[in-house]
Design a protein around this nucleic acid. Sequence first.
DNA 1: TATGAATGAGTTTTCATTCAT
DNA 2: GATGAATGAAAACTCATTCAT
Lengths: 192, 192, 192, 192
Amino acid sequence: MGSGYGRRVDSPSDARSRILDAAEELFAGGGYDATPTARIAAVAGVPKGLVFHYFPRKIDVLVSLVDERTLVTEEDPEPAPGDAARALSKLARRLPLTASPSMRRILFREADTHRSVKDRIHGLNSEIIRRARFALELALPGGRGDAARLEAAAATFAAVLLYQESIAHLTGHTIDADVVADLMATALAQFG
Amino acid sequence: MGSGYGRRVDSPSDARSRILDAAEELFAGGGYDATPTARIAAVAGVPKGLVFHYFPRKIDVLVSLVDERTLVTEEDPEPAPGDAARALSKLARRLPLTASPSMRRILFREADTHRSVKDRIHGLNSEIIRRARFALELALPGGRGDAARLEAAAATFAAVLLYQESIAHLTGHTIDADVVADLMATALAQFG
Amino acid sequence: MGSGYGRRVDSPSDARSRILDAAEELFAGGGYDATPTARIAAVAGVPKGLVFHYFPRKIDVLVSLVDERTLVTEEDPEPAPGDAARALSKLARRLPLTASPSMRRILFREADTHRSVKDRIHGLNSEIIRRARFALELALPGGRGDAARLEAAAATFAAVLLYQESIAHLTGHTIDADVVADLMATALAQFG
Amino acid sequence: MGSGYGRRVDSPSDARSRILDAAEELFAGGGYDATPTARIAAVAGVPKGLVFHYFPRKIDVLVSLVDERTLVTEEDPEPAPGDAARALSKLARRLPLTASPSMRRILFREADTHRSVKDRIHGLNSEIIRRARFALELALPGGRGDAARLEAAAATFAAVLLYQESIAHLTGHTIDADVVADLMATALAQFG
DNA sequence: TATGAATGAGTTTTCATTCAT
DNA sequence: GATGAATGAAAACTCATTCAT
């Protein structure tokens, strides 16, 4: 559970983190609507009232989670390496989205629940597509190429990256992003 | 909305269908949890109690929807045409899943709400991957080929088909399945 | 199940009997309030509507049950035999109440539910006490005796007879009415 | 009404007690099934939701009532006095059951509603029979005696003690336990 | 800050009863 | 008579949110 990235030291307002940890786990598991705030408090091991002390409305828990525990890095990746497949693979590993698997499932699943979540998903996706397109362009000899193909390849790759966990969760099949990167690069290299 | 495919004639006891129509629309829109049964009744134009008459528990509405309004066709497609890209494209259009766009969103989004939904998603996905693999094998010269690549291509294509609407809904980007089919076939044809 | 006394021939309105049989079983088991009419119909193997065809209100099922399946015989028992203990024993076996064990539990348990049930219980009890008193008077030498003792003995014996099944059901202890009869007669014979 | 024995001081959070008081009164009057939780809240003078706050399910009110407001005292009575009749009489007054008349009616009437109630009735009855047997053994000259008679006498006496109020309520006849005690002791003294 | 009792609007569920066929 | 769909009032239960302490 938790954001998965490092244990927080037991500090005064450590309770707040524990509440977010609990919410992350529960929202990813059963969904936002199906998770009572009392349950969050119980899992977090804090009294019910404290949840509302930190998060006046329930939706604030979700919004805070999304705001604080997902990060779309804005800075461009360093100039791509040699080939497109490698660039895509690198992108896969350096996803410009800092978010635990649980957080990705939440982003994905609760998109309609609150505008703030939906906005963030749009942002993420746009950013990933933009970078995938950038990386893939390297694969196109001469830089020209079929715009539609490039777009589809980029969007597909972005979807694989974004929804990897959800796909695995929902279908039981894991998709190896590196292999997909390789396929996309190979395919695009044929045209152009 | 509605079952999407064909209007039912106004027959005695089409109330049940109207309830399912309304539920399909509302579940796809706001989600299962956020939809009160009273709302379903109102949209269906039937009294509240009638929903219970047909579906003793709220979850039964969802389960019935999934059971009755999605169908994973079992029969194999006719022997594939000439090339893999065309075979995949055909698969895209003849998705072995009979379900309206709303139903796909529901399948996808409410997967954790009830086991029955999850089971069906598993079934769907397995079937689509199986067929995608079958179609893509055609693209591999000599029939040999890289199993991992084949698998990744098939799974990616299946994901695109299954989550097309959700991806569009969540990100605003439409993915053209035909183009993806073409890309996959092209990429695989390079190996083998 | 059923009144226990003889199987009814399959006749035109045999359904009515089956409904009463089912109600008897269910009311004795879970109580009147906790038994839905739909359940009665299901156990009786008749459509729900038929219950209301025969018994316009639910309470009519209970009232009919009580009216038709309990009978306080009005005629006095033949002039008592030799001694009081035997007279009481005989009373025990010829209880002036014709009712299956289930019906006795119902009478007992639903007494507050409807006046008709309460009235019948009063009637039953009065009659049994009257006869017990009559039988016990035989035990009193000279016919005189302590009125309070006689009354307590008669009421206790009546309670044992009436609530035998309920006591057994609720406590797991069976009371042998014959032995109690003997005890009462013996005790009273000491006074007088 | 209330638990009947002693008024609780108006202390913080006596709302829970008031809810139990109200439930005790209403369950004894109309029965568990016929008493809506809203009615309990109204009689207790608390908002509807508070009933749930303390008792997540309606049945918990009944179970708590039984668990908290009936007590089968475990300690043995002091060595019985001179004669059996007096020992039984004493038992009658020092019933090893601490429960208001309402609680006894509830125990008795709702026995089938929940296992916890039935279990308690069993416990009570066993204890009372055990003590009645103990007291009655004093009446048997030489300590020998007829086991069946002893058992019947004890069980009958226990039933009179336990169901006193219900019998009075259902039949209108009050049974004087002291007189029954005297009868039982007298009868047993004849044998042995 | 911290706490859990208190509140009440909203939801699900139950079910007796009606009624067209 | 027989049937099961239809109805709606009432009940149980949920839970976000408030608030006194």
